[in-house]
Design a protein around this nucleic acid. Structure first.
Lengths: 221, 221
DNA sequence: GAACCTGTGAAGAAAGTGTGAAGCGTGGGG
DNA sequence: CCCCACGCTTCACACTTTCTTCACAGGTTC
């Protein structure tokens, strides 16, 4: 499922966008200011970002510039102002598209689809670690060419580990990534899913190593 | 080399576009009004057309309608106006995409590439998966030579699956494709249509496999 | 050895899926 | 104008898969 982060200070706008996007099977996360929005993006690695230009404190353009220092996630700018200068500035700062409020939901969805498609062609949505390959677009995993059948939680977990292959990922980082909105403690469940993953990876593929009291680490063969 | 015809009354815009496209190895031809544009298209059989909506005498929409009577060449609309109604009208008249000026050259090139790729399927309007054949031009499906009677929704759904045969297509991708402008959640309806499709495909044709919580996959044999 | 951490089988809970049947809306024929 | 056929969607409910919790057996650290 595609993840989208909305950064807008008006709760009404957020709620409307959220409703529309959820009905199209997007997984929606909301933020009401720039800093918390950036935090959400870093944590969730969304497939697209909807960013309002008129934010209090840290304006949208600054958020975009900061974001582009470390992420290439597609960004769709929302704005009440229809000034060409502003538009050009945003696009030059790395925005992928620009719509002015008020906008139709159909148009928004269409533009969102366009920038996502463009993004997929510009960056390969595959992660590799040894003979393991994860295709993020199709939610497919394969080991030495053979398809691995993973449940959604297992895929998300392996994705998190593979993204930082060779390095330690702490329990906290894993749990916040795999269970973003969960309030109860998932460390018990995490252990069980790690167990399942290890069985599916077998002895030939990458190994999941436990770093006691810290986290896990994925190492090649 | 790809041929492109530009129809725009402003020489400045034509020159800019022409420069950008030529640098990308397109063969560019310019026209300053509708009638001469149509003549160019008839003569040159280009691979794509860039059409300005705001033409003097014969407006862009009329040009498009006239063009669609005898040609299916991909058309990218250029316009200064960002009205959704106008956009919808143009798309319904047979335009393949719509950009509002001013636009980035990168965006223009990306959109041009997209509509050309789409056009390729227009020239080869058949999709095959095992003993299943879909004729996109006539909206006909056949299984092992026998004609399959499909409703429009079923055809669109099977089309989506067959296009990515063998790979997972997520629920979100399917729903956005089959119900483009729908705001309510269609996942319930999707399950029912899948059920109907499976019955019509029987046991001999390709099978629709469910990947729990992710999507569906069409496999041959 | 005590305290803590980790791996894994098993089972109940939760979430997701398939399908018959009923309801809704539309458009063509009488 | 009504009626019917058709396709789409919604609902109900049985069924399947996945997730979480629990129990307990090692292991490690001090």
């Amino acid at each position: 499922m595609n993840k989208v982060v909305i950064i807008d200070d008006e709760p009404q706008v957020r709620r409307l966008l959220s409703m529309v996007l959820k009905s199209r099977n997007y997984e929606v996360h909301e933020a009401e200011d720039g800093p918390s929005g950036l935090q959400h993006i870093a944590l969730l690695r969304p497939d697209a970002v909807l960013l309002d230009l008129g934010l209090p404190a840290m304006d949208g353009l600054s958020v975009l510039k900061r974001l582009r220092e470390w992420s290439e996630v597609p960004v769709l700018i929302l704005s009440v102002r229809d000034e060409e200068a502003l538009k050009v500035e945003a696009l030059e700062a790395g925005a992928d598209d620009y719509v002015t409020k008020p906008f139709g939901t159909a148009e928004l969805l269409a533009r969102l689809a366009v920038i996502q498609r463009r993004c997929f062609t510009r960056q390969n949505p595959e992660i590799t670690a040894g003979n393991l390959t994860l295709n993020l677009l199709h939610h497919e995993a394969s080991l030495a060419g053979d398809r691995l059948k993973l449940t959604p939680t297992e895929f998300s977990l392996l994705h998190t580990l593979a993204e930082h292959a060779g390095r330690i990922v702490t329990f906290g980082q894993i749990i916040r990534r795999v269970w973003p909105a969960q309030l109860s403690d998932q460390s018990e469940a995490l252990r069980v899913h790690i167990s399942h993953l290890r069985r599916k990876l077998g002895t030939s593929g990458p190994q999941i190593i436990n770093e006691p009291a810290i986290g896990y680490r994925l190492i090649d063969s």
